[in-house]
Design a protein around this nucleic acid. Structure first.
Lengths: 217, 217
DNA sequence: GTAGCATCAATAATCGATTATTGCTTCGAT
DNA sequence: ATCGAAGCAATAATCGATTATTGATGCTAC
């Protein structure tokens, strides 16, 4: 399906920061660039709006969302509310296969360089993906599709907001927090794991919104 | 915008149960019925898929979702995980205006008949809406759009699943639980409110999935 | 009688063109 | 010079028609 390809391409471009926040996404231009018809780009854009990756201004077309600092903090708070609870369920229910996948995901994350000189000031695409997979894997033994879909949605919004947050903090990748998270999860220590996760989320949002922008290990 | 109207119409029809689960949603038929072009119905259907109110079968078109009993229980579990936490925040942060809106929403819910003979075996549209507004109002003082959007999404999925659940239980409308919920919320008793909410959600899913189908006050 | 292939009708996906709306620009009046 | 209204260019929204896929039907070969 053509619209699927266009959707994937656009999603990647927006998440990668190829467009600035607020920038118009003109169906005609996109159609010409990708060599497809208006209907196809239109469908992709409508889907993007549904996922929160584009805004729709009635009769004024589509645009990359403008994320306020406030919105970013709301998303972070939502994650602090939901993810620890899901993590507890996951730790409760996970089997050996899950443990193995957590180890694998953490290993990949720890060994993937977060920043490389030539890719600008942001972390690499490979690290972003490894980061997502690690957090997703931690939760996915909860076995509840509705909760995991909620996680996916919040993660996407979170990454988009983070991409454009005022204060980028290249020194912070939370490696130590990830290590403690893996450790607590595999030890089935739900209290510690939940606490570390809350701290991780709190520090991340703090590093990206505070004027001080404190670095962390 | 035309697609908006078509979307609203379709959403209503699906939630109302005008189509059976699994039934195909043919763009051509819908376009003819509503007197619009294919592009318009197509856009509405794509949006519906995004909201989980329609399934998309690649190259086989759109259809009303088939909800398994398992899926329904997952959604209910997700609500039990998320909503009590949001309710606590709402109780913590709500002001007098919120208290007034909770009272108003509960009053409307309590005074709206849940069932009328002529509207078939299901509760009325007016009651369903009053029910949604009451639960939504309880939570909305949390002030977090991301969390409220999550609630909206889960509520929609929940109502759709409930509509087609195997065991409908016309005697159960949870009036007493709603009363206790209102009482605890206004008394700012977060622990009690959260406990009542969990019980309310648990009883609802139990009444609709158990073969026994026990009625409750 | 059955298995497998070819044909066909239904419809999903896509396209190019048309209509309607918006914000900007320009022109005129005060 | 500035404010306001009319015209204009850009583009969003919509449409009708075309192409591609699918699942079903019926035919043929064994």
């Amino acid at each position: 399906m053509l619209s699927e390809q266009v959707y994937a391409q656009l999603q990647g471009a927006i998440m990668r920061g190829d467009y600035s926040p607020g920038e118009a996404l003109k169906p005609q231009d996109l159609a010409r660039e990708q060599g497809v018809s208006l209907a196809v780009t239109r469908e992709a854009l409508v889907r993007l709006v549904g996922e929160g990756l584009a805004d729709r201004l009635p009769n004024r077309g589509f645009a990359v969302p403008l994320l306020s600092d406030h919105r970013w903090q709301e998303i972070a708070e939502a994650r602090r509310v939901i993810e620890p609870a899901v993590l507890r369920m996951s730790i409760e229910r996970g089997d050996v296969d899950w443990e193995a996948r957590v180890r694998a995901a953490h290993h990949r994350l720890a060994r993937t360089p977060a920043y490389v000189p030539e890719e600008g000031e942001h972390y690499t695409g490979a690290w972003a993906e490894a980061h997502r997979v690690f957090h997703r894997t931690l939760l996915d033994a909860c076995g509840n599709r509705a909760l995991l879909e909620t996680f996916d949605r919040l993660w996407t919004a979170s990454e988009l907001a983070r991409r454009w947050s005022a204060h980028r903090d290249p020194d912070r990748d939370g490696a130590e927090e990830h290590r403690r998270l893996e450790e607590a999860a595999l030890a089935r220590d739900a209290d510690t794991a939940a606490a570390v996760l809350v701290q991780h989320l709190t520090l991340t949002v703090a590093a990206l919104t505070d004027a001080s922008g404190q670095a962390s290990p």
